[in-house]
Design a protein around this nucleic acid. Sequence first.
DNA 1: TACACAAGCGCC
DNA 2: AAAGGGCGCTTGTGTA
Length: 541
Amino acid sequence: MHVVVAAGAEGGGTIRPLGGTAARVTDLAAAVRSLEAAERPRWVWADARRVYPALLAAGVRLSRCHDVALTEGLLLGADARYGEPRQARAAFARLHGLPVPEDPHEAAEGHQPGGTQASLFEPAPAEDPSSEAGMVAEVFEDQLRRVARTPDPGRFRLLVAAESAGALVAAEMRHDGMPWREDVHDELLTGLLGPRPAHGMRPGKLQALADEVAAAFGQPVNPDSPQQIVRAFKAAGIEVPSTRSHVLKAVDHPAVAPLLAYKELARLHSAHGWAWAAQWVGGGRLRPEYVVGGVVSGRWATSGGGALQIPKVMRRVVVADDGWTLVVADAAQLEPRVLAALSGDRGLARAAGEIDLYAALAGAFGGVRDSAKVAMLSAMYGGTSGDASKLLPVMRRRFPKAYAFVEDAARAGEEGRLVRSWLGRTCPPPSERWRRLVAGPEGARAARDRGRFTRNFVVQATAAEWALTLLAVLRGLLPDPARLVFFQHDEVMVHCPLGLAAEVREAVGRAADEATRLLFGDTPVRFPMEAVAVACYADAK
DNA sequence: TACACAAGCGCC
DNA sequence: AAAGGGCGCTTGTGTA
């Protein structure tokens, strides 16, 4: 059963079973709650971000949805129409040949006055929820028809379901938040940087390092300015091409040590310091805004908050509540396993049936595990460094189907064609700029670059959909009140009472198996997902 | 003052 | 872990 739902003003809205008649309700949350309990329908809405947060705030959780905006994005991509507006209103306009409105949040992107305001997408209630529901119903039915016309509708349906489930998880994770001990964070910052400074000032330890750098150069230098640093080194008789850390490490000069220390700490201070916490942390929880499908490969992004780039040193700030625990799990060697399943290479699949895939491959590479690793990575990412040129021919001979699979993807990219993931997510078509470049003197390089991108895309995008499927399945297996609180590409975190830890860990393993079965059916490839229960994120590895 | 862009580095 | 791809984010800097 499918039910369209649209939120209106003041907690009201419209509910419209597909094929039935619309009902206006004054208490949308109550109406949705009772229908969910009775029927467990698949809820169809324009955009989870416009409907679901308010339902969560009212204590309503849903099991399934179809997100029209996310689905529209997938369908447009499949037609090589990246960048067109994805909102239900835009899809409706395209369907009827009307002028297509821009997506409101896309249009609102860019720098905000003052620079401190994050560009959050505000969930605006519909002005007329009944007309929105009608529009959504019509677009939804059109989307079903378009899905049926994709090269593999069965897989694409799974992709749509997984992406939509991601929208539920993303909203729930923002609602619940990841445990974040503000006192531990402050302690960590104070220990590394010195006490919290007055607004606009450098913390004491940063200032001391900046002074050391200036003293070493014998002149005032702003360590935050790469240009000034390059000039200062030049004045000292040292030419550096850039001020990247790995470049500076090779330089013999007394300014290098304090400068490297400064860069590391300055980043911590500016990207994840007190000001960041004031904006994104509250009530012992970090609440970033996740952007489902925000990366072309299908990985998630965040809008503000930088939750997917939290430095490892900050993991000790993530601590379970008293009497609760964090179950942390990540997929081991996910991408080579995905390649094994994608390509149907028997030899590689056999190795991917082992817990340590690279160790299992070593035999093909003179018994050297490291060589197997380099060969696999070079094949998947188009690397040319080190021993790649020696190892790739071995890869080609021993694992011909896997090798051919990534080579074909690279060739398609170089020729300006499209590639698709296992479930049908499509890479962006080449830009106009690329087409011009490719026809010019730098053409070979541009072609090679796009080839590396498409080579990587097929693997990364399929890995992302395996992880997304795992997330969706796991969500359904979690016992109340366990909550998903973090998802980072191939890693999940569940916050649950101590007594549920064993059950949750087992659920993670079952979800991994089920995701594997849903995507690849009966395959010898294993996707190990080891879950550990810890009090603190830092103890998970 | 506002904006666009580059540099640099965090995560996977 | 590899090491490739990409993305978010802040600061500095040049230009309108």
